[in-house]
Simulated assay, not measured.
Amino acid sequence: MPRMFLLFSGHNDRAVLALCRAFTNRKVDFVLVAGSKSDPILRTTYSDHVAFIRADHVVDLSLFEKARRSISPRYSLVYCSTTEFINSWVLNNRQSLRDLDIEANLPPVDVYNQLTQKSTSPDIVKMICGLSSPSILPWTSPISPCVFKPKSNILQGIVHYPILCFNNDEATHLSSMLDPNDWFVQQYVEGQSHYICAYLSRSGRYHCYWQTNLMQQPNGKSIVLARLGSNPGIDEVKLFRGLSLMGFWGPIMMEIIEGADGHIYFIELNPRFWGPLQLGVDACPEMLDLFIRDAGFDISEYLQTPKPIDGQYWYAWAEGAEMFGCRIYPAAKQYDRSHLQSLLRKHDVFTRGDL
């Protein structure tokens, strides 16, 4: 039976757009569920792949039943992982989806949760490849700069994100407002941010690339400018072998911070596709090929993205960089502000021919 990827837009839009480009270049069938009438995907050439537009943000079986009814029954559907909130529901409702001929396409729920949760992933990464994390601070007397992190990404049906604190009064206030059963506080580490981005197959094969981050929205939000980077000193083979042995497979991104003294700190893992995925679509097509084939699709044709003339691959999100107070990482210090603005405009993920 022919297969078709099922993508939910309206969440992690930049990753969804990058996946649409990757699937289109490989003639791989896919269908979209738009998040709302204002979903940016409706203003792209991929709007004809939209099966329907959601009336609300409720994630339950009826959402997938509507997706199934909207698509020809001759296709088996394969869920594509781009959002933690929908992933959480899919992981716990595999059989219901299987009854609809929708493949969850996610690793075991216990393995996924151990990696995505900020309270458990540091110990796993330290055990696998020896990377340490920033120090845990006492809850009652946190010293800034520090980061308050949710132990689980989803608490009482709401996705929570880390909160950065740069003064002691703010840190004390947060410790009095948040529940220490649900949150912990960690030392904030200055340095250069790197991502290792990969697809790890069910058989243990992987393709990966390194991303050097230049600019990031305040409070640790989205990366808005990055370039293809190099390994700062991680044993990649040990990392992916360890993840595979614990039963993980799928897309995964790990952030590390390289301190001024050269020490490398583990920050977090995201076992799903990441916002700056376009960099991987351009610079590491083998990773997308492995993901697509591992999901049971054939790639009969491939329209390759032209290589940049100067050999350097970039990722940018110009609109996201308009947020006041973007963090400038050390790798960006060689550029003045006008040059950074030029890079943002030139490499913007939303300024390609399909928009």
Rank of each mutant, 00 (worst) to 15 (best):
V90Q: 09
G353E: 06
D294W: 11
L7V: 11
G242N: 11
C20P: 02
C165I: 04
F248D: 00
N231L: 11
L19N: 00
I264T: 04
I71W: 07
L19D: 00
G130M: 07
L19C: 03
D294Y: 10
T45M: 14
V109C: 13
R26L: 10
D310P: 03
I257P: 03
I102K: 05
E258D: 02
V224H: 07
C284E: 07
L17P: 00
P73M: 08
L63S: 06
G204A: 10
M1K: 14
A260F: 15
S338W: 09
R327L: 13
A295L: 06
P150G: 05
A283R: 09
F266G: 00
D298G: 06
I257T: 14
S72P: 00
D182H: 13
P142T: 06
V159M: 13
Y329F: 15
L228A: 12
A321V: 05
Y302N: 04
Q114I: 05
V90E: 04
V59Q: 08
S152K: 14
S36Q: 06
Q186Y: 10
F297L: 10
R3N: 03
W183I: 02
F291H: 12
I71P: 01
L269H: 04
M215V: 03
A22W: 04
H49S: 07
F166V: 01
F266N: 00
M246V: 11
I267Y: 13
A260H: 14
L42V: 06
D235I: 06
D235K: 09
F350D: 02
V78N: 02
L137T: 00
D336R: 11
K238D: 04
S141A: 15
I41C: 03
F148H: 04
R205C: 12
C146A: 15
H263V: 06
L7G: 01
S9F: 12
C146N: 04
A18N: 07
V237E: 15
C165Q: 05
S88F: 09
K333N: 14
P142F: 13
S203T: 11
K126W: 08
V28W: 04
L290K: 09
S36W: 10
S121M: 12
N105K: 08
V159R: 15
G242C: 12
Q334L: 13
I196V: 15
D48G: 01
T212K: 14
A22P: 02
I328L: 13
A22I: 02
S222P: 00
A331C: 10
L200M: 10
D56Y: 10
I292S: 02
F248S: 01
F148Q: 02
Q334N: 08
S119T: 01
L32H: 07
C197K: 13
H173S: 14
L343Q: 01
E258Y: 03
A104G: 04
S72Q: 07
E65Q: 15
G35M: 05
N231Y: 13
H160R: 14
V28H: 04
S96M: 11
I154R: 11
N168F: 05
R241N: 15
F350H: 12
L239M: 13
C80I: 08
P108W: 11
D354L: 10
S175G: 01
Y112M: 07
